[in-house]
Design a protein around this nucleic acid. Structure first.
Lengths: 107, 107
DNA sequence: CCGTCACATGTCATATTGGACATACTCGCT
DNA sequence: AGCGAGTATGTCCAATATGACATGTGACGG
């Protein structure tokens, strides 16, 4: 497909797909869960490195131990928001967080 | 305070604070909104760079134009999750996302 | 002018995520 | 074996984020 026509269709709201269209959706979903996984691992690592228990981190967050456990397990019921807040609460720098994300690159 | 004692108290769940304790809470909150802001800006930039309208991106996400608009405005009603999904839908690489976050470092 | 397109803003019913609590599992210790 | 600290897992229902929709603005072309 000509790229100008493709652009026009996309502007019109269509998801212009090639043969792998359906796959790309789940590929993005996969990238998303990889990202969550990486952040979950990061939370655990940084927390342990600082000698904090899940309960201690929970108190800082105004959350509960069970939520922290689920978070570190990358449970589907926890959002990226909570993970980010956790990382920040632990004292992760932007660079550290960026590094966690960068690590998910490629395969 | 001795750092071993501090560690013990923290393990016990206490938020051991220095004089800036109350401030750190809001400082983290500020870092969080800066992060959201950076990602919001990133979404807009990448979307425009690819010649997509908000409606087109919304369709890809299975969302709506209004939500995309709020997202790019870093509205408090939109989650990091949606922003990340957007970036991935747009085709941002992990490196690009990491760079957006890294940029929020320092001041 | 008027229509159209892209974007902004507000509201709402519903779905997802939240903290809390109970309870179970796993160690290391004595 | 029995304990205690830390962690895991499951279920509540309250809080928040969601898509949909209506409507408003502003720019551009005719």
């Amino acid at each position: 497909m000509k790229s100008d026509k493709k652009a026009r269709l996309e502007r019109a709201g269509w998801v212009v797909g090639d043969a792998a269209q359906f796959l790309t959706l789940s590929a993005q979903e996969q990238r998303f869960v990889e990202l969550k996984l990486a952040l979950a691992t990061g939370v655990r690592q940084l927390r342990e490195r600082r000698g904090l228990t899940q309960a201690a981190l929970a108190k800082r967050l105004g959350s509960s131990q069970s939520r922290v456990a689920k978070m570190e397990a990358a449970d589907t019921s926890v959002s990226l928001d909570l993970m980010m807040r956790s990382l920040l609460s632990i004292g992760a720098t932007a660079g550290e967080i960026a590094r966690l994300i960068k690590k998910t690159e490629a395969a």
